[in-house]
Design a protein around this nucleic acid. Structure first.
Lengths: 109, 109
DNA sequence: GTTATCACTTACTTTATGTAACCTAGTTTA
DNA sequence: TAAACTAGGTTACATAAAGTAAGTGATAAC
């Protein structure tokens, strides 16, 4: 029902980046490792969905989860090489947004 | 409930690109104008959601809708300058995907 | 021993997306 | 002339994804 016009790798990348929160989570981790609650409050995602996303992104080898056996135990999320490599994409989006987006002060359309 | 750590323009761009189908619709229009049913069958989106997306993207001045008074009437969607400027973003994603994604032959995780 | 925090999970609600049938206008087919 | 077809949608209904809020288990502070 859908001819394979689009490159599967590209489509997979688009699916990844089009999934809500994924790009923001990666973006948030660019400066360095962060903990669950830091990510959560920084981007305003619900705990439930963040939990899902972190698992999925870990599964896709974009981030890694590290349990640091301090006392109390600390859990840190950080980008893998693959995750870090998305910086180029995010920077391009950032550049584009500076050029073309107006901040929506006008909440009422 | 969310400190304004993230640039609003960037966040708006991310919201745009994170909305399902938006990137693919723009991508599909990069080579030139297309009609409703062409876009629909090319990317496998439902008519309902495509209708929504086209309106929204038009409202955001990324695409334009043109009624061509042939017989029968033809409706063409094409990118505006702002829409075309997203090519840089999409190309970066494409490049990234070629380097880092493996096509998911392994549908069973 | 009550209260608090972190990193979640679970149950439930709301929103987004998908499916399929229908609509309007023009067009061809019989 | 009527039935059927096409393009570009819209509407009603079903399912999937996301949000909300409360709960859990481990540890620690008061």
């Amino acid at each position: 029902m859908k001819q394979p016009t689009i490159c599967p790798k590209f489509e997979k990348a688009i699916t990844l980046l089009s999934q809500r929160w994924n790009a923001l989570v990666i973006y948030q981790l660019l400066p360095g490792p962060q903990r669950f609650s830091e990510i959560q409050s920084a981007i305003g995602i619900s705990g439930k969905v963040l939990s899902d996303r972190l698992k999925e992104l870990e599964h896709q080898d974009l981030i890694k989860r590290e349990v640091i056996p301090e006392t109390p135990v600390v859990i840190e999320y950080s980008l893998t090489e693959k995750g870090k490599s998305l910086e180029s994409v995010l920077k391009t989006i950032e550049t584009w947004s500076q050029e073309w987006m107006k901040p929506d002060d006008e909440k009422s359309h």
